[in-house]
Design a binder for these strands. Structure first.
Lengths: 311, 311
DNA sequence: GGCCCGCATGTAAACGTTTACATACGGTTC
DNA sequence: GAACCGTATGTAAACGTTTACATGCGGGCC
């Protein structure tokens, strides 16, 4: 491994001069600069990022903690984060699959000294686990976490509003019997979407019918099953709002299987507006969530925390 | 920032002992170990990864270089890489959007000292750029790169075989007039898929018809346009093989628009088997590519290069 | 009792940088 | 020609760890 010392020796200068050439700081005579550069490329010298950030205590890297990498939602978020990060010359270090608290803690510790700050997107991390794992205070931004806590910067989807809007849309199309395929009740996103659904019904003075509030777990299968249950009801709904697109797609399959015409007999709406939504047949109406933008916003917030004045 | 020194001072031991406690190497009396641990948690001490890897010259991180983060292909690959990496206690550092050579070089340099090796997935990086940017030799694995070069480990999709298989499948269903919607000719994946198509025709002693080999560029739109052209031919093909699923979906749109029945009048096959393929109507037949597995294989190959004997 | 051994711990040098401070030197200014 | 200044460079101490080597100590063996 060729280091700054090797370059210095070959170029007959001190390490300080080489450092100045590569860090771009401090005065160096033009001729010296060129000589150092030439020697460096000849030797294939590349500054060692780790060593550099050890002394500058700046890594130009942001950490991203995810529960999982599966599905379009996460990949879109990452794309947004990456976009905003590279715009400011930052890199990404990724860590996924934090199923339990200890895994989360491990990931958090592993980041120490490797990142300037972290974006956390673990829906069911409790405040306790979070607080006790911020080693010293490098900045943190919570991305769509269940934890709606003033102590941390956070970026969230406006679930309630989105759900309310789309259900109102169904109402305006004349639907009065509107069902919801909800998600796991402990999931905040789901909970909020359910609240939005109820709010929209209240707005329209439609009574809630608990039979039309079926549970799901955000998977296609659960949407399929939920729809089957709804179809068996005597008072069959004329419209269904699925709390995410995967379940909506599952529901569509169930409807197709049952030979029910969409949207003539039963209308279906989803949430997330994932790209697939445009390709199912018939196209799915869905609440659009600017997923990548969510990532961008979180990143910008984090970068802001690094250098509040410069931006 | 609390360092190993602070812990040592408070626990009345030397830094060496604290280090031994946390790195798990070397003998420490049980009582001492506990005392150090307690002080450390009280002080919220977390070892500094950067400093650690500076001296051990081991980062437990692998770098991933991508051209882009957009689309299911890349997100699936990353998922596979992450899966295999975390299995061995490695982290990921991500760098995307290397549109030109200088960006690629920059990313490559930024990785120096931060990763133990890299996985490169830039379809159009030339050997030259690659070679001259391996600072010193940390291991490299090429993932589905155009560069089929013995100097580097690489993992690739078996394009030719996949294409040949699916076209043969069409042949076995009685099709004799089979068109291909190809991709950009300079793209290796596309080129190989085209070769597979021709091989299958040769296998079946069907003559090639250059009018049935239409160009595309891997986008939905290009598939749509290509299909339109094919539909206008006097000798209309009875089956179409699109070199990827996006183009196949575009082709399906064109067929629907033209009122052509699929698959009765024209059969369509794709390549990649992206999840959307199952949701279009009618479902698309496609060559399945185990994308995540591709990432896993690349990662395992890289990890192998780190410690050839231990695995 | 002298010797050796093994365990627990400490000391200090590394790792590859950056940077505050010191130094050297040529050119102004009085 | 002394005093000063600015520019280019060198010296060496940091950054937070790990680890080779040294030290001290208690015990078993002859």
């Amino acid at each position: 491994m060729v280091t700054i010392r090797d370059v210095a020796r070959e170029a007959h200068v001190s390490v300080a001069t080489v450092s100045r050439v590569f860090s771009g700081a401090g005065p160096v005579r033009e001729e010296t600069r060129r000589r150092v550069r030439d020697i460096a490329t000849a030797l294939r010298y590349v500054p060692h990022g780790g060593a550099r950030s050890l002394i500058t205590s700046k890594t130009s890297t942001i950490g991203v903690l995810l529960p999982d990498l599966y599905g379009e939602f996460f990949s879109e978020v990452i794309r947004g984060i990456d976009l905003a990060a590279r715009r400011s010359g930052y890199h990404l270090i990724l860590s996924s699959s934090h199923n339990d608290r200890s895994e989360f803690e491990g990931a958090m510790r592993a980041m120490r000294g490797r990142v300037d700050g972290v974006i956390i997107m673990s829906p069911d991390i409790d405040a306790q686990a979070l607080m006790s794992n911020l080693p010293d205070s490098h900045p943190v931004v919570l991305l769509n976490c269940s934890l709606r806590c003033a102590a941390f910067d956070s970026v969230n989807i406006d679930n309630t509003r989105g759900a309310r809007a789309i259900v109102s849309h169904l109402v305006s199309h004349g639907h009065k019997r509107i069902a919801i395929i909800a998600g796991a009740p402990r999931n905040v996103d789901c909970h909020e979407r359910q609240l939005g659904y109820r709010a929209a019904l209240r707005d329209a003075s439609i009574d809630r019918n608990s039979r039309w509030e079926t549970p799901g777990n955000f998977t296609e299968d659960s949407g399929f099953e939920a729809m089957r249950v709804l179809l068996k009801l005597r008072a069959r709904p004329t419209a269904v709002f699925a709390a995410n697109d995967s379940m909506a797609i599952g529901a569509l399959s169930a409807l197709r299987e049952a030979g029910v015409k969409v949207p003539e007999e039963v209308a279906v709406a989803g949430f997330d507006d994932i790209p697939i939504a445009r390709h199912v047949n018939p196209p799915l109406t869905s609440v659009h969530v600017p997923i990548a933008e969510l990532g961008e916003r979180a990143t910008d917030k984090l970068l802001d925390a690094f250098a509040p004045n410069t931006r």
